[in-house]
Design a protein around this nucleic acid. Structure first.
Length: 516
RNA sequence: GCCCCCAUCGUCUAGCGGCCUAGGACAUCACCCUUUCAAGGUGGAGAUCACGGGUUCGAAUCCCGUUGGGGGUACCA
């Protein structure tokens, strides 16, 4: 039996939903009309976390009913994104599952059957109105200052009239017959009850004239049939949520728990993050040298928090801690700086092996693509690259910075202004002398260890009456070509004796020539 | 226009009536460490809790209103 929406008790008012106690089946249901960005994946992450936290399942369903806007490759990209983030999908395209198919275009008979059922039950009706008439009606309403809504022209068509049009072969859509009085209550797990006047509702199209369902019908049928318990979706769905409550009721079904998660705003302006406003497709972050752990940690904290202290949280910790009750309702702003901090943090946590594994592809890219200079032979020596990367590890904010940061370890020739060899409060002559004395000191060394070089050169610094920075700056530029580098002695050790000595010799020559 | 959502440091947030002279993180500033840059450590600045009314012995926390921002208003999702 289905409750009448026109009686006093508002629809949905007494649904006693708990949020996260039972095993949750959640889903992410994107339409393949573009590429998902952080906003979309954030909602998906919350859904995934809820499923994992409760020991339930997470499914991926493709809402491809808008065939005209479907973009090739979008489905693969979504799946690739989940794989990259480390969020495994329990049921969906590619992995399959007992509730498939997971593409809505392959489920049209299901929607058709339910549409018929709704019509038979008087909860929906066929609408023969042309798009032109619809537009005209809306225009008139607007000009009168009324909210544009379907005027329900076909809702009250006589049965024989309908039969006649059908016999004629007229096309039609199927619309939901909304109650016209009373209220419908949408229970939102994050915001509580939201009340809507039924009089303000619109009899939206459930089934398009091409026989494919709109989102309203399709998602309800699928979520019910797939036994989804919690629907997490963007807050833009709140306005149509009452329709969904009515629809579930008309179908005789218990609605799932709805949680409308807040938007993620673009870093500039007050607009929602989107392709137009500051959003990058998720996989673009991979190209730019971001680590999935950083993205996940950052996204989890956009609109959700564990307590007043926790900041760094692993996926495992997130699973253990996640709770719908701690998801906020206010929109959050996308903050690149914070993401970058997380990324640097997670890069620092990488083991030497993991770091090479992750960074090598960026270094071996072509020079034009941001890799090491093309003059450097590929493939790179892994062991050497590992040592080099380890030296730069704590300075890296993204993996994509690795090539520029480490190029002097690989290049044969350095290019720099001889002037930069001279440290502050130094002159060319004293620098030249320091360099020459250093050269002799290093030459006399039996081995080539950083600690050994350091103690010998520190003795030299004292002997010359200089400050460490005065001599080491020159050596640094000589050996790396830069004023900023990893610690000098480890750098020289890694570079090797031959290269280091050769560069110091070159620096002496260059400075001598420069000083005239 | 109409409907709906939201409102604590620049940003992400903690706070669910007294623990708050509002806590943490990013960013920022200073200092320490130090061969540069980072990383790390310490400390600082930064929020009249949008505003105005209530309720209460007591409000960032509850209620109402205002303002501001956002979303929806398709045979798109």
């Amino acid at each position: 039996m289905s409750r009448s929406a026109d009686v006093d008790a508002p629809l949905g008012a007494s649904d006693p939903h708990t949020t996260t106690r039972r095993a949750a089946r959640t889903r992410f249901a994107p339409s393949p009309t573009g590429f998902q960005h952080i906003g979309g994946y954030r909602t998906a992450l919350f859904s995934w976390l809820l499923a994992r936290h409760t020991g339930g399942q997470f499914l991926l369903r493709i809402e491809d009913t808008d065939t005209a806007r479907t973009v090739p490759g979008a489905v693969e990209a979504v799946i690739d994104g989940f794989r990259w983030l480390g969020l495994e999908i329990d049921e969906g395209p590619e992995v399959g599952g007992p509730y498939g198919p997971y593409f809505q275009t392959q489920r049209r008979d299901l929607y058709l059957a339910h549409a018929e059922q709704l019509i038979a039950g008087g909860h929906a009706y066929r609408c023969f109105c042309s798009p032109e008439r619809l537009e005209r009606v809306r225009e008139e309403q607007r000009s009168r200052g009324e909210p544009p809504r379907y005027d329900r022209h076909c809702r009250y068509l006589a049965p024989k009239d309908i039969a006649a049009r059908l016999a004629e072969g007229q096309g039609y859509t199927v619309r939901l017959a909304c109650p016209t009085t009373g209220k419908t209550i949408v229970h939102d797990a994050l915001r509580g009850d939201i009340a809507f006047e039924n009089a303000s509702l619109d009899d939206r199209v459930l089934l398009k004239s091409d026989g494919l369902p709109t989102y309203h019908l399709a998602h309800a049928v699928d979520d019910h049939l797939m036994e989804i318990t919690h629907v997490l979706r963007a807050e833009e769905w709140i306005p149509s949520a009452p329709l969904h409550v009515i629809l579930y009721d008309a179908l005789g079904w218990e609605p799932p728990v709805f949680a409308h998660v807040p938007d993620v705003l673009a870093s500039q302006g007050g607009k929602k993050l989107s392709k137009r406003f500051g959003a990058l497709p998720l996989l673009e972050y991979r190209e730019r040298g971001y680590l999935p752990q950083a993205i996940v940690n950052y996204m989890a904290l956009l609109g959700w928090s564990y307590d007043d202290k926790s900041n760094v949280l692993s996926l495992e910790q997130l699973i253990a801690a996640f709770d719908l009750d701690r998801v906020g309702v206010a929109p959050a702003r996308y903050d690149e700086e914070r993401l970058l901090w997380f990324n640097g943090y997670y890069i620092r946590q990488l083991s030497p092996e993991e770091l090479v594994e992750q960074a090598l592809p960026f270094m071996e890219r072509s020079e034009a693509a941001g890799g090491l200079p093309d003059s450097v032979a590929r493939p790179l020596d892994k062991a050497y690259a590992a040592r080099v990367l380890h030296l730069e590890q704590e300075r890296m904010k993204t993996l994509a910075e690795a090539p520029a940061m480490t190029s002097f370890f690989f290049e044969r020739e350095l290019r720099y202004e001889p002037q930069t060899l001279i440290a502050k409060h130094m002159d060319a002559d004293r620098t030249l002398d320091g360099l020459r004395r250093s050269q002799a000191t290093l030459e006399a060394l039996a081995g080539w260890e950083a600690t050994e070089m350091e103690s010998r050169l520190r003795e030299l610094v004292a002997e010359l009456g200089l400050k460490p920075v005065q001599l080491f700056t020159s050596l640094r530029v000589a050996v790396t070509g830069r004023t900023v580098s990893p610690p000098l002695f480890e750098t020289m050790e890694t570079l090797g004796r031959d290269t280091s000595m050769q560069r110091i010799t070159l620096a002496i020559e260059a400075l001598a020539a420069h000083a005239g």
